[in-house]
């Protein structure tokens, strides 16, 4: 039997993810020096920032797949867009929680409402949090896929615009460590950060592929059941936010 397309390369990707994340954790705690200003608490940086970057890229990726869906009318792109946004939401929750812990330890507050970077990230997350309820509110699967794609494109385009607007804002509390001029990270910290970023990006790719493989397998199983048995033997799908 031909394996599902999504499962191809999944084992290698999983191994690479585990190896890279283990290496990143090792570098974080045993190689990267303590930050002169923040001390040990700065170790959260190697987790929080990659999570935030990868989740924002995931939202944009969802928009890119949505464009492909509207251009080709291929439902597989809708599935890819849905899973990309779904995974990005999980990663963004991770970024928010780790960021809050860092803020509490570093600034003495769990959240700072007058900090543009934090609030803008929260706005992006809340905006994408409406993606699933939007899908769920539309019963017809064709319309659901089309409307969700339009939403994903508009919201995905908002992410880089929002990022640029925040960069141009004044009075930042949130530190700027990554800039076009090279930033302020010394070599060992930069290497640790890049490995951590690669690890989190690989984790995102792996979980995205796992989710797609699982959804694809479930759809194939359902279709097989309908073919082998009869339509009556297959319980009808209720209203769902996930593509079907």
């Amino acid at each position: 039997m031909q394996p599902p397309t999504y499962a191809r390369g999944l084992r290698g990707l999983s191994i690479a993810t585990i190896a890279t994340i283990t290496l990143a954790f090792g570098l974080t705690f045993f190689y990267a020096p303590l930050d002169a200003d923040q001390g040990f608490i700065q170790k959260i940086f190697y987790l929080h920032v990659p999570l935030a970057i990868v989740s924002l890229c995931g939202f944009v990726l969802g928009g890119v797949f949505a464009i492909a869906h509207l251009r080709t009318d291929d439902r597989r792109y809708d599935m890819r867009s849905y899973v990309a946004i779904h995974m990005a939401l999980i990663f963004s929750v991770g970024a928010l929680i780790t960021g809050s812990i860092w803020a509490k330890a570093s600034w003495g507050h769990w959240w700072v409402w007058n900090e543009p970077t934090l609030v803008s990230f929260l706005i992006v997350v809340l905006m994408f949090a409406t993606y699933q309820p939007l899908r769920f509110s539309i019963e017809d699967h064709e319309r659901q896929a089309r409307y969700a794609s339009v939403f994903a494109i508009v919201a995905g385009a908002f992410v880089p615009l929002n990022f640029i607007a925040v960069r141009l804002a004044q009075g930042l509390v949130h530190p700027r460590v990554l800039t076009l001029t090279g930033g302020h990270l010394p070599g060992s910290m930069r290497l640790t950060f890049l490995v951590s970023l690669a690890g989190v990006a690989l984790l995102y790719a792996t979980l995205w592929k796992y989710e797609l493989t699982a959804k694809d397998a479930r759809m194939q199983l359902r279709s097989l059941r309908r073919t082998v048995l009869s339509d009556a033997a297959v319980t009808p799908l209720g209203r769902s936010a996930a593509p079907s």
Partner: peptide, 17 residues
């Protein structure tokens, strides 16, 4: 906020990390 919140000592920062 940074000005009023000094860095934590490694012992105190560890639980957060």
């Amino acid at each position: 906020v940074l000005a009023v919140a000094p860095a934590l000592a490694p012992g105190k920062a560890a639980p957060y990390v």
